[in-house]
Amino acid sequence: MNDPAPAPSQVWVDADACPGPVKDILFRAAERAQVQVTLVANQWLRTPPSRFIRALQVQGGYDVADDAIAARARPGDLVVTQDIPLAARVLANGAQAVDPRGERYTPDTINERLSMRNFMDELRGAGVQTGGPAQFSARDRQAFANQLDRWLASRR
């Protein structure tokens, strides 16, 4: 008996905090490359009409969207997230992960990223002002588009 073909790889988006320009890049890429893009959030999201783009609304609550993505992301899939613990979870499952600024999370760098995140959380918990991320820029948009193009090319 033949094994069923594996599901084609797809993109999962941690959409609650994903910048609008990144979503626009993903929407265009979904049509161009005919790849499934699923936005996961605990709120209703507007998506363009497309057979390649869908939104998955999950219940509100801490890490509910992350849990939904981690449960669904498969080897070969790409997860777009700023959430470093989520990136670690999907990397452990064989998926790839990139942040909206185009920085890839890798098995070689994820532990360092988790340590730095935890350290910064401790500083904030102690009342230290650590500042927020820099403004999302055209350079960030281009870096993300480049990483997405690399992932799309690797699927062929």
Rank of each mutant, 00 (worst) to 15 (best):
Arg104Pro: 11
Ala33Lys: 01
Ser154Gly: 05
Ala5Leu: 15
Phe27Tyr: 14
Ser50Gln: 11
Ile69Phe: 06
Ala30Trp: 00
Ala71Gln: 10
Ala29Gln: 14
Val35Ala: 05
Arg113Val: 06
Val13Thr: 05
Arg89Tyr: 01
Ala29Trp: 10
Pro133Lys: 15
Ser154Ile: 03
Asn146Tyr: 07
Glu31Asn: 12
Asp63Tyr: 01
Phe119Lys: 10
Met120Ala: 02
Gln59Ser: 11
Arg139Leu: 13
Met120His: 03
Thr47Asp: 08
Val37Tyr: 02
Gln129Asp: 15
Ala95Leu: 03
Asp14Gln: 00
Leu114Met: 13
Ala70Arg: 01
Ala65Thr: 11
Phe52Tyr: 15
Val90Gly: 10
Ala71Glu: 09
Arg139Glu: 15
Glu122Pro: 00
Leu45Pro: 05
Leu56Lys: 05
Val98Met: 14
Asn93Tyr: 03
Trp151Thr: 07
Gly76Phe: 04
Pro49Met: 00
Ala17Asn: 14
Tyr105Gly: 07
Glu31Ile: 01
Trp12Asn: 05
Pro21Gln: 06
Asp24Arg: 09
Val128Ser: 05
Asp16Arg: 03
Gln57Met: 14
Pro8Cys: 09
Asp108Gly: 11
Arg72Met: 14
Ile25Trp: 06
Trp151Val: 02
Glu31Leu: 12
Leu45Met: 15
Val58Pro: 02
Ala68Asn: 08
Pro4Leu: 11
Arg72Val: 10
Gln82Pro: 00
Ser9Met: 09
Asp83Gln: 12
Ala97Met: 08
Leu114Ala: 04
Gln82Ser: 15
Phe52Met: 10
Pro6Glu: 08
Gln129Arg: 14
Arg89Phe: 00
Pro21Glu: 06
Asp67Glu: 08
Asn42Gln: 14
Asn111Ile: 07
Arg46Cys: 03
Asp149His: 09
Ala143Gln: 11
Val64Leu: 10
Asn42Val: 12
Asp77Trp: 02
Val79Phe: 06
Ala134Tyr: 01
Ala15His: 00
Ala73Tyr: 04
Val35Leu: 06
Pro75Met: 03
Val37Leu: 00
Ala153Asp: 15
Gly125Tyr: 00
Gln129Ala: 13
Arg28Ala: 15
Ile69Leu: 07
